Simulated scan of single mutants.
Amino acid sequence: MKIETQYTYEKMWAITNEAELLRIIEEEIGDADPKGALAYVKEAIKTGKTISVGSCKFREKK
């Protein structure tokens, strides 16, 4: 699964690797569980949804 990210101030979507995804999520939610949040994001975007975590949006690359 390839995941694209986009911050609210960006116009383009970027394909992001898993290590970077964890860093972004940790930055956005602080000390909460970033691995659990990433698992939720992966499950939710399988249905074609775009998920926001803080100021970053995630979607599956089709």
Results as ranks from 00 to 15, higher is better:
39 A>T: 06
22 L>D: 02
53 V>D: 08
51 I>Y: 04
37 A>T: 02
44 A>N: 06
29 I>M: 09
50 T>L: 03
49 K>V: 07
19 A>V: 09
2 K>S: 06
34 P>D: 13
49 K>E: 06
2 K>Y: 04
46 K>C: 08
13 W>T: 10
48 G>C: 08
20 E>P: 07
13 W>G: 07
37 A>Y: 00
55 S>Y: 14
35 K>C: 04
42 K>F: 00
11 K>E: 04
23 R>A: 15
58 F>L: 00
14 A>E: 14
5 T>A: 07
42 K>G: 00
15 I>T: 09
35 K>F: 06
49 K>H: 11
38 L>Y: 00
11 K>A: 10
54 G>H: 07
16 T>E: 10
17 N>F: 04
18 E>F: 05
21 L>T: 00
58 F>Q: 02
20 E>L: 14
18 E>Q: 14
35 K>W: 03
21 L>I: 04
13 W>A: 07
28 E>D: 10
40 Y>R: 02
9 Y>N: 13
39 A>K: 07
30 G>A: 14
21 L>H: 00
45 I>K: 02
24 I>Y: 10
40 Y>P: 02
13 W>E: 06
25 I>V: 15
46 K>P: 09
43 E>D: 12
45 I>H: 03
13 W>M: 10
33 D>L: 04
56 C>D: 06
60 E>R: 15
54 G>V: 11
34 P>F: 04
23 R>K: 14
2 K>R: 13
54 G>D: 11
43 E>R: 11
15 I>E: 07
43 E>G: 01
29 I>S: 08
52 S>G: 10
38 L>D: 02
5 T>I: 14
57 K>E: 12
3 I>T: 01
31 D>V: 12
13 W>V: 11
46 K>R: 11
39 A>R: 01
41 V>F: 02
16 T>N: 04
13 W>F: 13
48 G>R: 01
31 D>T: 15
59 R>A: 02
1 M>H: 05
54 G>L: 07
1 M>W: 00
48 G>A: 02
3 I>V: 15
36 G>C: 06
6 Q>V: 11
18 E>L: 03
18 E>P: 00
32 A>S: 10
50 T>G: 04
44 A>W: 06
13 W>S: 01
50 T>W: 09
28 E>Q: 15
17 N>I: 07
42 K>A: 08
